[in-house]
């Protein structure tokens, strides 16, 4: 049996995490290909329903990556996102899905290395936990 390859959805702020992911690429840093990035104008755009929908549609893990606290371009979007991630953790726990499958990270656009680290960390964490056991799609999804 092949090793479990989790599907992870990353909601990334355009100003920091998305730029950091770009930088990680430019720096030729290696990180697991399990992450699907969704680019947002600010993590303040994330609502609990977006996080839940990812799990509903087969994600095994989700993370939200925004600017360093105090450095949000829209002042407090990342602080709001943190609250919504906490809310989604509670909603997931209610349906017996480990809250650790979802997390919030803060980084700047210069932290390409940190972005690669976060992806590695999340992928490792979800691999250890196994599939989220929602509706695992029967056929592998082509990337």
């Amino acid at each position: 049996m092949s090793e479990f390859e989790p599907k992870i959805v990353a909601y990334c702020c355009d100003f920091c995490a998305f730029a950091a992911a770009d930088l990680a690429g430019a720096m030729r840093l290696q990180y697991p290909p399990n992450v699907r990035i969704i680019r947002l104008p600010c993590t303040g755009k994330v609502d609990a329903i977006h996080l839940m929908k990812a799990f509903e549609q087969g994600a095994d893990g989700v993370f939200v990556a925004g600017c360093l606290e105090g450095q949000c371009h829209y002042l407090e979007g990342n602080l709001r996102a943190r609250k919504r991630v906490a809310y989604a953790k509670r909603l997931l726990a209610e349906v017996q899905i480990e809250p650790e499958r979802i997390d919030m990270f803060n980084l700047s656009s210069a932290m390409g290395g940190r972005f690669a680290e976060i992806v590695k960390e999340m992928t490792q964490r979800i691999k250890e936990m196994g599939p989220a056991n929602t509706d695992r799609r029967q056929q592998p999804v082509e990337s």
Binding site: D47, I49, M52, F55, L91, V95, Q96, N133, D135
Partner: peptide, 21 residues
């Protein structure tokens, strides 16, 4: 509207887990 979406999502996830979508 938001509460409806969230509850629907929770119910769907829970029922899929039970094998009774």
């Amino acid at each position: 509207v938001k509460a409806v979406e969230l509850l629907a999502s929770q119910i769907k996830i829970a029922r899929k887990k039970q094998g009774k979508p």
